Amino acid sequence: MPTRRARHRARPGGLLGALLHGRTGLVVVGIALLAVLGAAVAALVLGADRADRPTAVPTAPPPGTDSSPSAAPSGPGAALLDWADRALPDGARLRLEDDVRGDLLAAGAPDGLVTTEEPTGPGDVVLTVTRGEPRPGSRVVARFDHLAVVDPAPGTPTPEQLDRRRALAEAVLANPTTHASDPAAAVLRSADVDARLLSLVAVLTAREGVDVAAFPRPDGTDGPARSVLLTAVGGAPVGTGEPATASLTTWLAAQRPPFAPDPVEVTGDGVLLSYRYASDPDDLVAEVSP
């Protein structure tokens, strides 16, 4: 005969389980469900009732006011700010010369981007926005119609750093798995490539081989190329819809600074790798290289 303890053992599911296992519980739960359904139906009915009620007709804005949303800023200033968001590293700032200050502020330049201070050290990126010609020794980083973004004191690679670039570029070109267009090969022969990007391309070449279509660089700008368009890796095409693209982007995402590209864009023409601006990329690579 079952013991008293066995007869009163708690059923699985706690209180809800106990309710469901008894006739009284079924009645209670059934009533509760009806109450919930009733509340839901009541809510729907009330909602429909409110929907059927006449609504207030919006009144016209007072004469002389414009209720339409304001248009987004456009023009060279807005294009420059969009570029800064995509191409400059975190913490970079812009010094605006007097004749362009109004253009940038009207375009919505954020307070954190605009400064009147000089750079505080080699890692502090402070670029000048000017309407005039850049001073000797400076570097034009980008142009937007009459506006130029200038690095007033860009880093200069040492002879050893230039030799390292040339050696990497020659190794890429000499590898039989490298396929480069004539313009891309000319850029590699000049070694005029950002040291971070060149190091990455060299490693990819040694691992699998690459097809290099171009080192895109805007007209009228100076400094080493910071972007490359790859069309194949390891003999497999890369780009939108290509199976080999996923493994390439996964590998790129696993890289660490300063070699991690940002951004990586998958396009119908291939995969475009870019690096945010650095005044002295050779020095960044030297800091982490043996």
Rank of each mutant, 00 (worst) to 15 (best):
T205P: 10
G137L: 04
L168M: 12
V100S: 04
A174T: 13
A51D: 14
G123S: 01
D282F: 04
L252F: 09
D49I: 11
A39E: 07
D85K: 12
P54K: 09
A48L: 15
S274N: 04
L188D: 01
P110K: 04
P263K: 07
A180Y: 01
A142D: 07
A43E: 07
P152K: 03
G155Y: 01
D103I: 08
A106R: 09
P152A: 01
P12M: 08
R166W: 12
A185H: 02
L197C: 03
Q255M: 04
L188S: 01
A225D: 06
L248I: 07
A92K: 11
S199P: 03
A35M: 12
R226C: 00
G14I: 06
P152V: 00
G112V: 02
A109V: 04
T3H: 06
T59W: 00
V264C: 06
V271G: 02
P58K: 11
A253K: 13
L33F: 10
T24A: 15
L188C: 01
L204Y: 11
L173T: 03
L198W: 06
V100L: 05
Y277N: 02
F259V: 07
T116K: 11
A260E: 12
L37C: 14
G239P: 05
G38I: 03
V288G: 08
D124Q: 03
D111T: 10
T24S: 15
R4I: 09
A253T: 14
V28T: 08
V201T: 07
L127R: 08
E242R: 15
R189C: 02
P2E: 13
L127H: 12
L168Y: 02
G241P: 02
P257C: 11
L96Y: 04
E242Y: 12
V172A: 00
E208P: 08
A106G: 06
P261Q: 12
I31S: 10
P76W: 06
G137H: 00
D124W: 00
R226W: 00
D103M: 07
A42R: 12
V125E: 07
A174I: 07
D103R: 10
A253C: 06
W251A: 14
F144P: 00
A171S: 15
F144L: 01
D269G: 09
G17K: 07
E97S: 09
D283H: 08
A142G: 02
E170Y: 09
D66G: 13
E265M: 13
T65R: 11
G239C: 04
E118K: 10
R139Q: 14
V271E: 03
A206Y: 06
T205I: 04
T115D: 02
S247T: 15
A148T: 11
